[in-house]
Nucleic acid binder design. Structure first.
Length: 919
DNA sequence: ATACTGGTATG
DNA sequence: TCCATACCAGTATT
C-alpha cells in the first residue's frame, strides 16, 4: 500500500475552449529547475552573458530545449513547474532531505527569474506551489490530463517523475546535452529498471536516492530491489515478507526497514494539488513577440534562437496577447467544411460572398503548375474545396468566384497562387493583399531580429514545411485527405488572421498606396510574364557550348604546360594560391579570409608585373568556364515547350528592384562580344515577329538631377547633349568639343560613383589613378555641381534623423546602422542611404512603366507582351503587324511613367533575337 | 546533406 | 575600402 493517503480523484480539467476537447490534449510538462540546472552545466557560462555580467547559459539552453520539444512533439498545452526556495513538506518528514548538496553556483543565480520572464513573453504558463516541489505540480497536471483522456509528456531529469509514466503519460529524459531526449514509455522503463513505472518508487525506496540524500538498504541495488518487488508484488509485499528473505541483504532490509518506509513516503508524488484547472491557461499561441524581442535584446541573444521560436508560441499575427485578447478566435480548423461538388456553388455564393483568404495545394515550376485543393478562410468559416472532380456547375462557380473582382481575396503569395490556378485555367481578380509583399514593404531588410515580422516569417516557414510534408505524403501516397484539408484550412486561416495586422503595418509605414497601386497589380503582370516565358533556341546554345568546350580544354592544356604539366584544379582558389604564391613565387595579393585573392583584377595586376603566360591562360579559362556554366544553366531551364520561365521576386532586393532566379535572366552577359552571343539564343516566339528591347538611358543620373535639383545637372539633361561629355566639359572647364575620352570616362565614373557613396579610395582604384588625383577629381565635380553635393549630404542627414530613406513613391528602407558606433557599419549604412533612394526610385519608375505598358497593350487589343525586365530595360515580344503600335505604347509608357524635372529618355531596338534587338 | 567562401555575371 | 542581385565550384562542417 502506498505510504501516502489514498489519492483523491483528480479534478477534471475544465475547458473554456470548445476547440480543445480534453481527449485531444497533448500536455507538455517541464521541470523548470531541473532542466535549467542541466542547461547550466551543458553550456559554458562564460560564453553566454548579457554583456552586463549576468550569465545566460541556463536561459539559453532551457529555451533551446523548450523550442525543440515543442517543435518535435507538437503539444497543445504547456506548463513549466518550478521549485520554490523555501522548504517543502518533505523537509518536515526528514530533516536531512536533499542535504549535503553543493551551494548553488553564483552564475546560476538569477537565471531562473530570467527563464520565467522569457516564459511570460512566450505565453507559457509557469507554476510554483508553496510547500511542494515541481514534481508534485507535474504529477497533478499529468494525472488530471490522463484522467480526462488526454496525453501528457514530461520533461524532467528527476527520477521521481518515473512513477508518473503510463500509457497516457510519457517521460522525456535528457540523455546528453540539452536537446537529446530519451522517450520513456512504460515498456522502456520496465526494460531499464525491471519494474513497471508505478513500482519504481518502491525500487527507489529500497535502493535510496543519493541526489536527495535518502539512504536506502546497504548492499541492495536496483537488481536486487527489482527481484524482490517482482517476487512479492510490490514494496508492501517485500516488507510483509521481509523475514523470508535470507542472506545479508535480507538482514540489511530488516535493519533499515524504517528508512525504506520513510523513503517511500518521501518519493510519492502528490497528485492532487490545487492548481488552475482552466485548460486555456496552458494553451499555446499566447506569446508576445514585442516583449520577447525586448527580453532577447536584454539577454543579448542572437538571431539564431529568435528565428527558431516557432510560430506556435506567438499570438496570431504576432501581436501581443493583450491586444488580441486571449484564447484562439475564429473557426476551428478541425471543423473545416469539405463541400461536395453540389455544395460548392452555394458555399461560394453564401459563405464566401464577401471574400476570403485563400491558399492552394499545388505546384509551379518550369512554366507549368497545377493545384488540387483550394482552402478558403473567412472570419467565421473554413472550407477546403477539392478542385479535382468538380462537375461543370461547380467548376463555373469556382471560376466565377475567383474572377469576380468585387470579391476581395488575400494570399501569402498572390503570384504563386495565380500560377497554380492558371494551371487549371482559372483566373483570379480582386486581390486585396499580398502578405509577402506587404511584409517586405514594411521591412525590406528582413533581419531575423525584427520581431514584429517574426510571426509572418514563421507563417512562411510553416507554409513551406506544410507544402513539403504534403508533397512527401503525396509521393508516398499516404496522404490522409482529412488531415490535409485541416492543414490547408489552417494555413488559409493564418493568412486571414494576419491580413489586418499587415494592413495596419502598411498604413503605419505609409506604403499602402505602394502596395495597392504598384506592387500588387505588378504581381499580376509579373505572373503573366513568368507564365509566358521567353523562347530559347537550344541549338544555338548547344553550338556555343560545343565551341566553348573545345576552347576550354585547349586553354586548360596550355595553362598546365606553363606550370610544368601539373594538372591542378583551375577552379580551386586554394590550389591556385599554392601554384602562384608558393611554387611560382609571385608577389602576394590582397588578403582574403582564407588566403590571398586570385580574382581577375589581381591576376591582371600580376600579369602586368610578371607576364607569366599561365595567368593569361587562367583568366581565359575562367571566362570560358563561366560561359559554359551560364549556357548549361540556361539549357537545363528550358521547358519542353522550348521556353525559359524565370521567377521574378518583388521581396528580395531591399532597394525595391526585382530579382530574377531559376534561372536568373537579369545577368545574361552583355558587356563582352563573346558573352553577348548567348543573347542570340533568346528569340521571338513562334507566331511572333520580333523582340523589342527598350531601356532607360542614365535613369539613375536623371533621378539624381531630379532629387538634387542641381541646376547644372538638370541643364545637362535638358540640353539633350551627351551627359558625360557635358559634365566633363564643366568639370575640366573646357569646351564640349574639347572633352577627350579620358576626361569623359573619369567624370562618368565619378557620376555613377556618387550614387554609390564612392570614396576617394574606391574612385582611385576604379580609375587606377592616385588617391590625391581622385580626391581632386571629386572636389572639382562637387565645385561645379554643388547641388549634388548638398543633396547627398542632406539626404544622409535626413535618413539619420528619421531612421529611413525614401524613394519618389515613398518606398522606405530603414537603416538603424546610420547611428551605429561601429565606423564600418555606420559608413556602410551611409553608402546605402545614398544609393537606395536613387536605385529604389529607378525601380519605382520602371514598375510604373510596366503597369502602364501592360495596360496599354491590353487596351489596344495587342497580342504583343512584355517578357522580361532587367532593371532599366524591358523585353517585349512583338506580334505581327504590331511593331509600330508597340513602339509607341512602350515609348509612351516608359517615357511618361513618372514626371521628373528632367525628361526620361528611352532607347529602343528591334530584332529577331535579344542580341539583334540591342541598340 | 548543408553552409560558407571566392569568384563572376548583370544593372 | 562602391550600390543591388544570382549562381557556381570548391571547401569545410554536421
Amino acid at each position: 500500500m502506498s505510504a501516502q493517503d489514498p489519492v483523491s480523484d483528480p479534478a477534471p480539467l475544465t475547458s473554456t475552449d470548445p476547440a480543445a476537447e480534453p481527449a485531444d490534449v497533448r500536455f507538455l510538462l517541464i521541470d523548470g529547475h531541473a532542466m535549467a540546472f542541466r542547461a547550466f552545466f551543458a553550456l559554458p557560462a562564460d560564453s553566454f552573458t548579457d554583456g552586463r555580467g549576468q550569465a545566460t547559459n541556463a536561459v539559453y539552453g532551457f529555451v533551446r530545449m523548450l523550442v525543440n520539444v515543442v517543435q518535435s512533439e507538437q503539444p497543445t498545452h504547456v506548463a513549466v513547474a518550478f521549485d520554490l526556495a523555501g522548504g517543502t513538506f518533505r523537509d518536515r518528514i526528514y530533516d536531512q532531505y536533499k542535504g549535503g548538496r553543493e551551494e548553488t553556483p553564483a552564475q546560476f543565480i538569477g537565471q531562473i527569474a530570467l527563464i520565467e520572464q522569457v516564459l511570460d513573453a512566450l505565453g507559457v504558463t509557469w507554476l510554483t506551489v508553496e510547500d511542494y516541489e515541481a514534481d508534485d505540480i507535474i504529477a497533478t497536471l499529468a494525472t488530471r490530463t490522463a484522467a480526462d483522456g488526454g496525453s501528457a509528456l514530461i520533461v524532467s531529469s528527476d527520477r521521481d517523475a518515473i512513477q508518473l509514466v503510463n500509457d497516457a503519460v510519457t517521460l522525456l529524459q535528457p540523455v546528453k546535452g540539452m536537446t537529446e531526449l530519451r522517450r520513456m514509455t512504460p515498456a522502456a522503463i520496465e526494460e531499464k529498471y525491471q519494474v513497471p513505472p508505478e513500482r519504481y518508487p518502491d525500487l527507489a525506496a529500497l535502493v535510496g536516492e543519493t541526489a536527495d540524500n535518502l539512504p536506502g538498504v546497504p548492499g541492495v541495488g536496483p537488481k536486487t530491489a527489482a527481484k524482490w518487488i517482482t517476487r512479492f508484488g510490490g514494496l508492501e509485499g517485500v516488507l510483509a515478507h521481509a523475514d523470508e528473505i535470507t542472506g545479508k541483504a535480507g538482514q540489511a532490509l530488516r535493519d533499515h526497514r524504517e528508512d525504506v518506509e520513510r523513503n517511500r513516503r518521501m518519493n510519492e508524488a502528490v497528485r492532487d494539488l490545487d492548481l488552475p484547472a482552466d485548460l486555456a491557461r496552458y494553451g499555446l499561441g499566447r506569446g508576445d513577440t514585442i516583449a520577447l524581442g525586448g527580453i532577447f535584446d536584454d539577454l543579448a541573444f542572437g538571431p539564431t534562437i529568435r528565428r527558431d521560436i516557432p510560430a506556435v508560441f506567438l499570438a496570431p499575427g504576432g501581436a501581443s496577447a493583450a491586444e488580441q485578447g486571449t484564447g484562439p478566435e475564429g473557426p476551428d480548423p478541425a471543423d473545416v467544411q469539405r463541400p461536395t461538388p453540389e455544395q460548392v456553388p452555394a458555399l461560394l455564393r453564401e459563405t464566401f460572398a464577401d471574400g476570403a483568404a485563400l491558399d492552394l495545394r499545388g505546384s509551379w515550376e518550369l512554366g507549368e503548375g497545377d493545384c488540387d485543393l483550394l482552402a478558403l478562410a473567412s472570419a467565421d468559416d473554413l472550407a477546403v474545396i477539392d478542385l479535382v472532380g468538380l462537375d461543370d456547375v461547380a467548376e463555373r462557380a469556382v471560376a466565377g468566384w475567383l474572377a469576380d473582382a468585387s470579391i476581395p481575396k488575400v494570399a501569402y503569395d498572390t503570384k504563386l497562387a495565380a500560377h497554380m490556378l492558371a494551371g487549371r485555367a482559372l483566373e483570379v481578380a480582386g486581390w486585396r493583399t499580398d502578405l509577402a509583399i506587404a511584409e517586405f514593404l514594411c521591412r525590406p531588410d528582413q533581419r531575423p531580429t525584427d520581431l514584429p515580422g517574426l510571426a509572418l516569417r514563421h507563417l512562411q516557414e510553416d507554409l513551406a514545411a506544410s507544402s513539403a510534408a504534403a508533397q512527401q505524403e503525396l509521393d508516398l501516397e499516404g496522404a490522409d485527405e482529412g488531415a490535409e484539408a485541416e492543414r490547408w484550412a489552417r494555413r488559409a486561416d493564418a493568412v486571414r488572421r494576419l491580413e489586418p495586422l499587415l494592413r495596419a503595418d502598411l498604413a503605419s509605414h505609409t506604403v499602402e498606396a505602394l502596395h495597392d497601386e504598384l506592387e500588387l497589380p505588378l504581381a499580376g503582370v509579373l505572373g503573366q510574364m513568368e507564365r509566358t516565358g521567353i523562347a530559347v533556341d537550344d541549338d544555338v546554345l548547344a553550338e556555343l557550348d560545343a565551341q566553348h568546350a573545345q576552347q576550354q580544354t585547349d586553354v586548360a592544356e596550355s595553362a598546365f604546360s606553363h606550370i610544368g604539366g601539373d594538372r591542378i584544379n583551375l577552379g580551386s582558389p586554394k590550389q591556385l594560391q599554392e601554384v602562384l604564391f608558393e611554387r611560382l613565387g609571385m608577389p602576394r595579393t590582397r588578403r582574403t579570409k582564407t588566403g590571398y585573392t586570385t580574382n581577375a583584377e589581381a591576376l591582371e595586376d600580376l600579369f602586368a608585373q610578371t607576364s607569366h603566360p599561365f595567368l593569361a591562360d587562367l583568366l581565359a579559362h575562367r571566362d570560358v568556364t563561366k560561359m559554359r556554366q551560364i549556357i548549361e544553366t540556361l539549357r537545363r531551364s528550358i521547358s519542353p515547350a522550348g521556353r525559359i520561365h524565370t521567377t521574378f521576386h518583388q521581396n528580395i532586393a531591399a532597394t525595391g528592384r526585382l530579382s530574377s532566379n531559376n534561372p536568373n535572366l537579369q545577368n545574361i552577359p552583355a558587356r563582352t562580344e563573346e558573352g553577348r552571343r548567348i543573347r542570340s539564343a533568346f528569340r521571338t516566339s513562334e507566331g511572333y515577329e520580333a523582340l523589342l528591347t527598350a531601356d532607360y538611358s542614365q535613369i539613375e543620373m536623371r533621378i539624381m538631377a531630379h532629387l538634387s535639383e542641381d541646376a547644372g545637372l538638370i541643364e545637362a539633361f535638358r540640353s539633350g547633349e551627351d551627359l558625360h561629355n557635358f559634365v566633363a566639359s564643366r568639370v575640366f572647364d573646357v569646351e564640349p568639343d574639347a572633352v577627350d575620352p579620358a576626361m569623359r570616362s573619369k567624370t562618368k565614373a565619378v557620376s555613377y560613383g556618387l550614387a554609390y557613396g564612392l570614396s576617394a579610395f574606391g574612385l582611385s582604384r576604379q580609375l587606377r589613378i592616385s588617391q590625391a588625383e581622385a580626391t581632386a577629381l571629386r572636389d572639382g565635380y562637387f565645385e561645379r555641381f554643388g547641388g549634388v553635393r548638398d543633396y547627398l549630404r542632406s539626404s544622409v542627414e535626413k535618413a539619420r534623423e528619421t531612421g529611413y530613406t525614401e524613394t519618389i513613391l515613398g518606398r522606405r528602407r530603414y537603416l538603424p546602422d546610420l547611428t551605429s558606433d561601429n565606423r564600418q557599419r555606420r559608413e556602410n549604412a551611409e553608402r546605402v542611404a545614398l544609393n537606395s533612394p536613387i536605385q529604389g526610385s529607378a525601380a519605382d519608375i520602371i514598375k510604373l512603366a510596366m503597369l502602364r505598358v501592360d495596360a496599354a497593350l491590353r487596351e489596344a487589343g495587342c497580342t504583343s507582351r512584355v517578357l522580361l525586365q532587367v532593371h532599366d530595360e524591358l523585353v517585349v515580344d512583338i506580334a505581327p503587324g504590331e511593331l509600330d503600335a508597340v513602339r509607341t505604347i512602350v515609348a509612351e509608357g516608359m517615357g511618361s511613367a513618372y514626371e521628373l524635372s528632367v525628361p526620361l529618355s528611352v532607347g529602343m531596338g528591334v530584332g529577331r533575337t535579344w542580341l539583334d534587338a540591342a541598340h
